[in-house]
Design a protein around this nucleic acid. Structure first.
Lengths: 334, 334
DNA sequence: GCGTGATGTCGAAGCGCTTCGACGGGCGAA
DNA sequence: TTCGCCCGTCGAAGCGCTTCGACATCACGC
């Protein structure tokens, strides 16, 4: 293994000079730097990560805690993770993957052993058990999702309430007067994941504001359940012309159910969804939707973390504004 | 931060004794060990990862390189990753997440800086550009998938050839005489990913062995393409009664296409697939399938790596036997 | 001509841990 | 009784890097 002393000798300088040339923490003459860089290339020098971490008390590694639970849309998690890794690399950091399963002990472990400099925690619940620990830890963290009490933490997510509102605005703008929200499975609300309730809140508030008749319907993430909800809606709310779906797996089945029940989309019924773009684009009738901007959330989370590592203070809450993409599933009220 | 000298002082022993008590590399009297463990608990001691890595030249971190490419079924990757993390933790290791995008430089970087002790590389192609590097690296690695020349490497994957065969055996056992394989998109074969060809080979060999009439049809991963293939099959091979699908996204669309064309599954047509169990179970007609055992592959990959790190030699090729689960989509020939 | 402040470089002291050689005491074999 | 050996423990020497203080050099203003 070639080490910093080898480079120093080869370049005719002291090890500390090499170190400073690499880190830029002290001025080094252009000429010396050139010589050092040439030596580094020639010898193929790579600083030892452990030694660096020990001496500088910075590992240049971020922890990413991913959820395992059922009901989480896996591609979104993956996209998020990839975006975190990519952005972290841009800041010369690597990413350690942890699973929810490891729980608080896992967080404590990687933080206390100085394996990581900072943490990103996905799928934060309203009353997440990890919150006290995250507040107490001596390393910065960023949470994806909003707990009920974000004081002292840094949180980021899509603004789900605004997303719910935006869907309603869009439908209202098209003249719809009777609308429904087909939501996530009941357990998601019980679990207090926050974002599901926020959609409901935004949906209801906007509907009220526009004087629309609205209703909310939790729904299991299975095609059969979608069919049932569709039937129920036709039965109980025959004047319905607008639907907002916040439940990835049933977007397509729900539309099909409506069509099999004789409603054309968007001819008789307009449908909008809050879901990843790939999903909205991949259905037979492309769906007007608000994207889950997982890549953007991931990148922003890393940027926030970098600022915190740099000693800057960042806002406690970062809400990404929803962006609605109009596709083929919505039309003016018939 | 509490360090090993603090523990040593508190327990009335020397730092090296604490170290040996922790690592078990030298005998320590039961009594002393007890005392040390008590001190560790009381002080909340956690060894510094960087210091440990520096002194022992073991970071206890594994690199996991995940693919990004389109056409890869994301949930499978995620499931695999989770399984790797879980198994690694069981061996007191952590997992660093790398993306394919980083390429050879990324591999070299984490290996040369001693950030990781070993590597797991997913989605290995037949003529993967990373192979020479992996062979040359001074740390062990395990590949998921088989290159054309696995000499000097350690590879593991589902035995896709046997999987193709098993599907045919199943259909043949049910009396089917005319069968077809609906495969992956053409570019997958061009890309030389190996596993797709292996399925074809197994399929064809088994069909020949049983004297069945067989054909192979690459297919894009889109519902429209599924429909086209279905029509083509009905037109060109009217006696067809058995189909093997190796293309996750179109399993369901293909079955639907057949049914819309007037064929009942499994009444008129038996369908088997090679796909994740969740997918096979989630369709309207649950599909008889051979699972992609991602969790098992991940766990086994880690175990192999641990053996290699322990100095043991492991087989170059590990092929996981296919397991066929009979569901509702196959029946005896009408 | 001299103090002053950058500028560029060096040497040495750690960072916290592992590991090697050494050593004292107890035990069985001779 | 003595020799040798194993067991349990200690001290010290690193592992490869960063960083702090020191120092020499040079340009500048007065």
């Amino acid at each position: 293994m070639v080490k910093i002393t080898d480079v120093a000798r080869h370049a005719g300088v002291s090890p500390s000079t090499v170190s400073y040339a690499l880190s830029g923490k002290r001025p080094i003459s252009e000429e010396t730097r050139q010589r050092i860089e040439a030596s580094i290339r020639e010898l193929g020098y790579r600083p030892h990560a452990g030694a660096r971490a020990l001496a500088s008390s910075r590992s240049n590694v971020l922890a990413l805690v991913v959820p395992l639970r059922a009901g989480i849309h896996v591609p979104v998690v993956m996209q998020f993770a990839v975006s975190v890794v990519t952005t972290a690399r841009r800041h010369d950091h690597d990413v350690l993957l942890l699973t929810q399963e490891e729980g608080e002990d896992g967080l404590r472990r990687v933080a206390d052993t100085a394996l990581v400099d900072a943490l990103i925690v996905m799928d934060v619940q309203l009353h997440d058990r990890r919150l006290p620990l995250l507040r107490a830890l001596d390393r910065p963290s960023v949470l994806i999702g909003f707990p009920s009490e974000p004081k002292g933490l840094t949180c980021i997510d899509l603004d789900f309430q605004a997303a719910g509102e935006a869907c309603v605005e869009h439908l209202a703008g098209l003249g719809h007067r009777v609308i429904a929200l087909v939501g996530s499975p009941p357990e998601v609300y019980v679990r207090e994941t926050g974002f599901a309730q926020r959609v409901v809140r935004g949906f209801t508030a906007a509907a009220d504001r526009h004087g629309l008749s609205s209703s909310v319907h939790p729904c299991e993430a299975a095609p059969g359940a979608a069919r049932q909800v569709a039937e129920q809606l036709l039965r109980e709310r025959p004047a319905l012309t607008g639907v907002v779906v916040h439940n990835e797996p049933i977007v397509e089945p729900l539309i099909e159910a409506f069509e099999q029940l004789g409603l054309r989309v968007p001819g008789d019924l307009s449908v909008t969804a809050i879901c990843p773009d790939e999903l909205a684009d991949g259905t037979r009738v492309p769906v007007t939707s608000i994207a889950i901007p997982s890549a953007e959330v991931g990148a922003t989370a890393v940027e926030l973390l970098m600022k915190k590592l740099g000693g800057a203070t960042v806002p406690e809450a970062t809400l990404l504004p929803p962006r609605l993409t109009v596709r083929a599933s919505t039309a003016p009220r018939p």
